[in-house]
Write a protein that binds this DNA or RNA. Sequence first.
DNA 1: ATCTAGGTAAACACTA
DNA 2: ATAGTGTTTACCTAGA
Length: 682
Amino acid sequence: MMVESASETIRSAPSGQNGVGSLSGQADGSGGGAGAAGTAGGGAGRDTAAGADSNGEMSPADLLHFQQQQALQVARQFLLQQASGLSSPGNNDSKQSASAVQVPVSVAMMSPQMLTPQQMQQILSPPQLQALLQQQQALMLQQLQEYYKKQQEQLHLQLLTQQQAGKQQPKEALGNKQLAFQQQLLQMQQLQQQHLLNLQRQGLVSLQPSQASGPLQTLPQAAVCPTDLPQLWKGEGAPGQPAEDSVKQEGLDLTGTATTATSFAAPPKVSPPLSHHTLPNGQPTVLTPRRDSSSHEETPGSHPLYGHGECKWPGCETLCEDLGQFIKHLNTEHALDDRSTAQCRVQMQVVQQLEIQLAKESERLQAMMAHLHMRPSEPKPFSQPLNPVPGSSSFSKVTISAADSFPDGLVHPPTSAAAPVTPLRPPGLGSASLHSGGPARRRSSDKFCSPISSELAQNHEFYKNADVRPPFTYASLIRQAILETPDRQLTLNEIYNWFTRMFAYFRRNTATWKNAVRHNLSLHKCFVRVENVKGAVWTVDEREYQKRRPPKMTGSPTLVKNMISGLSYGALNASYQAALAESSFPLLNSPGMLNPGSASSLLPLSHDDVGAPGEPLPSNGSSSPPRLSPPQYSHQVQVKEEPAEAEEDRRPGPALGPPNPSTTGPAEDRDLEEELPGEELS
DNA sequence: ATCTAGGTAAACACTA
DNA sequence: ATAGTGTTTACCTAGA
């Protein structure tokens, strides 16, 4: 209750100062006291500070785009996996016995449960969708062609029978009928042509007429009328026998079939990264190019259907030593035949469903975000729920451009070197949503979660744009802000700026969180105020910071669990995963989907660090690099550098130990050592 | 049930 | 006088 009311008040609270007094005047009186306080160098940078609430400047459109992208990223990955081979899910055993796999896989693909709930969740990026669409179009086209072909054949047959039967009939009659049939044939062909043209016009299909029509011949009975599709999926592939056959074949031997027809399937020079191998229907694979951005495995010399040494063809996990072998395998095992065609259709269906689900999930996401981050009282238009802007008036000033401010590298990606960096956007959301109830009490997450730095690194775009409360404590955030700077020191105002820049959430209710920030700075020993010529700056005493956290971690089963299973996906993970599980996002729960890098980062850490929020890296984190030196900081902070010295004097503080804002990597290491070694944490 | 950490609100002091 | 900074205190809540 309190919370709610509190938040309410906050919200309504005038962004400016809290009205002093009026309310219950607490007779604390004492208030003052605060010995040291006095000296507050205070003002220093204030002048410049003017724009405390500045935040990155992005156009609403950009933001929206961003958010959407983020939200969809995970989905995209999933989709990629799906598109490139659904098989994997759970059949390890299947590896050897492809036969056994085939059926299950295809079934699985069609199974509503399998497809729908879970996979669908994922969202696709526009480009991805595009690719998929193209693929589908191509397939559709093929099917159309097949259909037409079929029709033609039938007509021919009829014609023949007619001829035979009508031998006796007057020639005229026969002639008429023939004519009629031929006309029909013509119509069919024209229709076919038109379809092709239409598709091509739409840019959905980019094949040459010749190509398009050619393959047809090779598709014997696979003919499927578009309308049959549904059944196809439902019933395993093809209508009638063909389907059965194919299924059986699949189940049995992959080898047998091969050869089949056609040759065109084996382009002699596929050797190169062959971006295209022909689809079963002979059409160039449209989906091949598969957005490198997200696909980790796709390297220059790879093939979309080849990864981790095995064939990614749905249901086929045949191991191939190299690309060459794979290609050979592809051409023999997955040549154009009924089975391949059926599988392709299934995959197509899968993709379609995913798309549908994607749309639904997208919508849901929007709604969720809108619900979570937009107060009823707030006029925020649903359409742009995520836009950071809404909040505080100050916010609008945008002094700092997000663009320049965030070299993307933002936080030193902890250890995660190769980490796909794909932010699991939603994580933030997830956690937020979970805690959202008012003033998030993300304590737990704070404690046990992965390093804030990595978390942020992974999701910074998300937090930056989504009005989601970050699952970190003020202390850890402040620390992070400070450590991110080259000198590891920030003025209060800069800290404010960091908050607003990094989190859309802190672009509103400024009075509230700013007060909290100040409160935390003063309250925690780990934050050391250092005065310098130009004013006061805040630094972090890592030791103190570490101390204050309950070393508990080791014992915490949950934590350990999280670490292991979640691999430290960040504070969010736990909650996020839960959320995912709830919403049936299978993949997300699987480690694979998550950023492995983070995991690695954690491992090395000392137990407590791990457990600790902001953690580990941060400590040295800042270190990571001689910093990316975010422009913004640099210019703002520059002032401090000098002062730093002064500080040193002042603060024999343990913390910065070598208070040196050490600008160089080594120094950082040093810091790290000091901290991590662990000290007394335990 | 008790502690503790963290969040929020607010009073008050200082200083530019 | 005002606003930004700092410091404290009080009260709440959630988690251990």
